[in-house]
Design a protein around this nucleic acid. Structure first.
Lengths: 365, 365
DNA sequence: AACTTTTTCGGGTACGTTACCGTTATGTTT
DNA sequence: AAACATAACGGTAACGTACCCGAAAAAGTT
C-alpha cells in the first residue's frame, strides 16, 4: 500500500546526483548570487524529481535564530490582562525549535505610560512586539517607526488601525453589542427603556459595541427605547456615580448593557437602588464577584472577551510570521463567549491561579 | 529591569558549569547507566537552575526520526469533521523544527469502519493517532493495544474513557445540555412541555447532554415538563419520523432541544407541521441551512461545538506530548459557543471553503 | 600577453544532540 | 603483586543545513 519512505533526499543527494557540490545547491535554493542560470535550473529540476524537502530540523538547528519578543501590557485590569499574558506565554512555551526571548513589561493602565514603553521598545530592537495601544492616535507614529526598524507589531485587545502594525487581534465589538441587545430582547418583551454605560468612546472597540447594540435594539426590539450613552472614561468612581444618576432620573429603566469592564461599581449602584433582580443586566468580561450574580440571575449574562485566547492567538500569529514568514490577516476578530449561569463555572477557572493546557508531569527526556 | 538575553543553555553549558563532560550530562538525562547518582542529581539540579530545555531541532536531526501521526475521521458529517481536520492541519503546519508525517484516513460514518481503521493503524506503527471512536466498547481494546505498541492515542469529539488513551478533547456535554435548558427557560415562562431528540444514548457525550438538560430544566424551569428522550440513532430518516410522531402526539409542545447534529430532518418535520416559529428550538452544530432560521428566530440558538478548535487542540496536545514529553490532562472539555442570530455570521465562515488563520503569502525559502 | 574583475563553484565549519568507543579510577580475585 | 572486572566519565563523529572563505574558471581590460 504505502511505498517505502526511502530516506528522504537531502541537498547532498541532489549535489552528488549532478556531480556538483552542496554549496551550489544551497545557493540555488536560496537564490543567492553566484550560480549559473542553467545549473540552477538543473538543480531545481533534480530537486523536484527526487522530491526534495528541506530538513526542517537541520535548518532550525543551523539558523539557531533567537527571536526577541517584547510584550507590553497594562497592570490594570488584572483579571483581563493576566490571562491574556498567560495566553501569550502558553503560545511561546509551546514553540520549540526556536530560541525565544520573551520580555514582559508593564505600565499602570491603558493610556498611561504605554507610549513611553513603545518608545523604549525602539532601542530594544525587538523582532516582534505585542501591545495594547490605549490611544491609537498617539501610538500610530511609534508603531510605524517600530515597523521601519524591523519590529513586527501585533496589537491585542485594542487596535491602532492606521499604523502599519502587522495585525491586530481583538473581540468583535459590533457582535458584542449586538449580542447584548439580542439577549435583552429575549426577556424584555414589552415596551420599556434600556441604557448603556461604556468606557471611553474614543476607543474604537467601545464605539463598535454601542453601534452593534443600538442597531440590534432597533432591529429586533423596536419597542425598547435607548437612552443616550454614558461614558465612564474607564474610571470606577465615575461609573458608580453615573449609574446612580441614571437610576434616579430613570426609574422606568428595564435593561442595562455595561460595555466597560468596570461593571462592579455600576452593579453596586444598582444594588443600592434595590433594582438588582428587577433590572435586566448584560455585562462585559468576567470577575469573581460576578459569579454569584450570574447564579441568581441578577446579571442575565456577561460577554466574556476571552483574554487567554486573544493572547494565545496574537502570539501564534506573531511567531508564525517571524518564523515562517506567514503574514496574518491584518485584523482578526474573535467572537465573545456568552456566559450564562450554566457555563459560568467553566470560564471561572481562568480567573484564579495560572492556567495551563497541560499538567506538569514530564516524562524523562 | 530586563535580565541579559544570555543565550539559552545547552548540555554544553550544564557540563562546563559543573566541570564535567557533555557525555555525562547526556547519560544523566536519559538515565542511562554509567553515571554516579550524586552527579546525576547535580546535573538535574543545574539543568533546572539554568532553565535547560532540550533543543528539539538538534535532537530531531541527530535521531533522524520523523514523527508519524495518523488521523482517522469519518466523512460524515462533513460540516463538522472537515473543519476539525483543518484544525489538526493548522496545528501541525505551525510546527517548526520537527519532521512530521501526517496521515489522514477516513471511514464512512461514526461506528462504521472505524474499528477496521484502528486495526490497520496497528501495523502502521504510528507515533501518535487522533481518532473519534464511535463505539467506545469496541474501540477500547484496540486503543489499549495501540498504546502498548507505542502509539499515543488522542480521542477527539468523542471518547473511549476506559481505554488507556493519552487524552480526549471534546465539548462539555453537560454544559451543552444545561445551556439549552437555560436558553429555553428564558422564553418559555409559562407551564408547558419540552422534548429532546438525541443521536445515540450509548455515546457518552449525548447522555451527558441530556443529563445537563434535564437537571437544568428541573432547576430553573420547574414549570416545564420534559418528555422522554427520543433516540434517532444518528439516522436522518429516523430523526424525521420521530419528530413527526412527536409533533402529532404532543400538539401542546412548546420547546425542543435537538442534541444530535441531524437537526435538519427534524426541522423539516417541524416546518411541515406548521410549528416553525411557534416552537422554541435549540439545535446543535452549525449548517448552512440553519443560518436563515437563526435569522428569523425559527431556531432560537444553536450550540456550536467548535470543531476547528477541537482539532487544533487535540493536535497541539499530541505534539506537545510526542516532542516534549508533556503529558496532557486526560480529558479536556471545551465550552460550546452559543450561536444566536447576532453572531451566526461570524461562525458561518468556518462552513465554506477551507479556513486558515493566515493568508497564503509565503516568503521564499 | 599579463593583468584585473567577475562569475561560478568547492571546501570546510558550526549549530546542539546522541551514541559509540576509549580512558581513567576503584575495587576484586588469583 | 599482577591481572582483571566494573563503574564513572571524557572525546568525538555524525545528523542536514547555512554560509563564510577561498579557488578556479571565465570574461573583460590594458
Amino acid at each position: 500500500m504505502q511505498n517505502q519512505p526511502a530516506k528522504s533526499p537531502g541537498i547532498k543527494e541532489i549535489a552528488s546526483a549532478l556531480g556538483i557540490s552542496i554549496a551550489t545547491v544551497d545557493r540555488a535554493f536560496h537564490n543567492r548570487p553566484g550560480v549559473n542560470a542553467t545549473t540552477r535550473d538543473r538543480i531545481l529540476k533534480m530537486a523536484a524529481k527526487l522530491g526534495y524537502r528541506p530538513n526542517v530540523a537541520a535548518r532550525a538547528l543551523k539558523l539557531n535564530r533567537r527571536l526577541r519578543i517584547g510584550v507590553q501590557l497594562p497592570l490594570e485590569i488584572a483579571s483581563f490582562f493576566d490571562p491574556l499574558g498567560e495566553g501569550i506565554r502558553a503560545a511561546t512555551d509551546a514553540m520549540f525549535g526556536v530560541d525565544l526571548d520573551i520580555n514582559f513589561s508593564t505600565y499602570p493602565r491603558l493610556g498611561s505610560g504605554d507610549i513611553d514603553l513603545l518608545h523604549a521598545a525602539l532601542k530594544e530592537k525587538y523582532d516582534g512586539l505585542i501591545c495594547t495601544p490605549g490611544d491609537a492616535a498617539k501610538a500610530d507614529p511609534m508603531i510605524r517607526e517600530l515597523g521601519r526598524n524591523g519590529t513586527a507589531v501585533i496589537c491585542v485587545a485594542s487596535d491602532a488601525p492606521r499604523s502599519e502594525r502587522l495585525a491586530s487581534v481583538s473581540i468583535d465589538g459590533y457582535i458584542s453589542g449586538s449580542l447584548a441587545a439580542e439577549l435583552l430582547s429575549h426577556t424584555l418583551l414589552v415596551p420599556g427603556t434600556v441604557a448603556t454605560i461604556t468606557g471611553a468612546l474614543r476607543t474604537l472597540d467601545h464605539a463598535e459595541k454601542l453601534r452593534g447594540f443600538a442597531a440590534t435594539i432597533a432591529l429586533v426590539a423596536p419597542h425598547l427605547s435607548l437612552l443616550p450613552v454614558l461614558e465612564s472614561h474607564d474610571n470606577p468612581e465615575e461609573a458608580y456615580h453615573q449609574a446612580r444618576n441614571l437610576l434616579k432620573s430613570h426609574p422606568e429603566l428595564r435593561g442595562l448593557y455595561i460595555s466597560t469592564a468596570n461593571s462592579l461599581p455600576v452593579l453596586r449602584a444598582v444594588r443600592e437602588h434595590g433594582q438588582l433582580g428587577r433590572l435586566r443586566i448584560i455585562t462585559t468580561d468576567l470577575f469573581e464577584e460576578l459569579l454569584p450574580m450570574l447564579e441568581t440571575g441578577e446579571v442575565l449574562a456577561t460577554l466574556y472577551q476571552r483574554p487567554f485566547t486573544q493572547g494565545k492567538t496574537a502570539a501564534e500569529l506573531l511567531l508564525r510570521f517571524l518564523v515562517e514568514g506567514m503574514r496574518p490577516n491584518s485584523t482578526m476578530r474573535l467572537a465573545p463567549h456568552i456566559v450564562l449561569r450554566s457555563n459560568a463555572s467553566h470560564f471561572a477557572r481562568y480567573l484564579g491561579a495560572a492556567h495551563s493546557l497541560t499538567s506538569d508531569t514530564t516524562k524523562p527526556v
